[in-house]
């Protein structure tokens, strides 16, 4: 408190043991302080520039690696379903389709469930249960994806093949659209199973972020709503969700990012087939699964290059998702400001 009026250099000088001319040492100390600041400044800027350099390096490397495939197949690469290493004709449509469909299934399940879990934890859950459930969900996020893959293949897929898929196929056999979506034979593994596994993997991201933002809702808002006679559902729908939508969308995007890029678990249960079929039970493939499966043994430049091109497309898709998320958040914030 007493040193509140002291010069910075005087404070710094207190540590100096050898007595010296005050003016000279003050200049030296100031120089030293400036130097440290300059170094710190440079380091932080360097770190930021390094990230930028890395990013552009990745993009350049991807474009360079993908060039042979893209120049051979042109834009048709995006719309070609065939993936034939024998005749060296490659197209990205099947992996793109698989990536989008499995991520869509995952989000369709994980978002509503995640929001409900988060709301239960913040509003309705007895205090005693709150911590155990919260920790359990965070542990779910910590499980390595290979474990999900092995569990999916050895436990979940046989269960799907014997119980769930026959039930779906038989139940919806005569329903127009659903009979195509859930057409047999039951393989156990396939796009649907991959989507479900992804949903489980994405769930903790959606839940824990939603829970954090739900916690941030001022109690006075909720209390006021309950006070005028709102039901719990109405509080959730008209008070909590509107107040937290930015954070919720952030959690949604984080989950979607993971679903789009997830590799190991998907590879185990999707069936790795370069096909597009209307049935969700059919085997398919995703971009990251194709790369993981085939890269080491891709013989020939065009094959390798096509896989790199797949990577470039995934990069682009993820970039678009992030851009859309930013745009949505921006608009929401503007609306919120009104």
């Amino acid at each position: 408190m007493a040193s509140g009026e002291q010069d910075v250099s005087e404070v710094a000088l207190k540590g100096a043991s050898a007595p010296m001319a005050v003016a000279a040492s003050r200049a030296a100390v100031l120089r030293r302080l400036r130097l440290t600041d300059a170094i710190f400044h440079g380091l932080t800027r360097g770190a930021s520039l390094a990230v930028l350099a890395l990013l552009s390096g990745v993009i350049i490397a991807l474009i360079y690696g993908a060039a042979p495939a893209l120049s051979t197949f042109g834009f048709g690469f995006l719309f070609d379903e065939s993936w034939n290493p024998v005749t060296e004709r490659f197209g990205a449509l099947a992996p793109i389709f698989g990536t989008l469909v499995t991520s869509f299934i995952a989000m369709l399940i994980a978002v509503p469930v995640g929001l409900m879990v988060a709301f239960f934890l913040t509003e309705l859950c007895p205090k005693m249960l709150r911590r155990p459930i919260g920790i359990a969900i965070e542990l779910l996020a910590g499980i390595p994806s290979i474990i999900y893959g092995i569990w999916g293949l050895f436990v979940f897929a046989p269960f799907m093949q014997e119980h769930v898929q026959p039930l779906f196929i038989n139940t919806f056999a005569n329903v127009p659209v659903l009979s195509t979506l859930f057409a047999g034979p039951p393989y156990g593994i396939g796009m649907f199973t991959a989507g479900l596994i992804l949903a489980i993997m994405v769930l903790p991201f959606v839940t824990s972020i939603s829970r954090d933002v739900f916690d941030a809702v001022p109690p006075v808002l909720k209390e006021a709503a309950y006070g005028v006679g709102c039901t719990t559902w109405e509080v959730f729908r008209y008070v909590v969700l509107p107040f937290t939508r930015v954070g919720v969308i952030g959690g949604f995007m984080l989950g979607l990012g993971r679903a789009l890029g997830e590799t190991m678990a998907v590879t185990f249960v999707i069936g790795n087939a370069h096909h597009i079929s209307a049935s969700l039970f059919a085997p398919g493939t995703t971009i990251s699964a194709s790369i993981a499966n085939e890269f080491t043994e891709a013989v020939g430049d065009l094959y390798t290059s096509s896989l790199v091109a797949l990577g470039l497309i995934l990069f682009f898709i993820t970039f678009c998702v992030l851009a859309i998320a930013r745009y949505l958040l921006l608009r929401l914030q503007q609306q919120g400001g009104k």
Binding site: S82, W83, N84, P85, V86, T87, H274, E294, E297, A298, V299, Y303
Partner: peptide, 8 residues
């Protein structure tokens, strides 16, 4: 289909 180390 043909013959190769990877096939369609």
């Amino acid at each position: 289909v043909g013959v190769n180390t990877a096939l369609q």
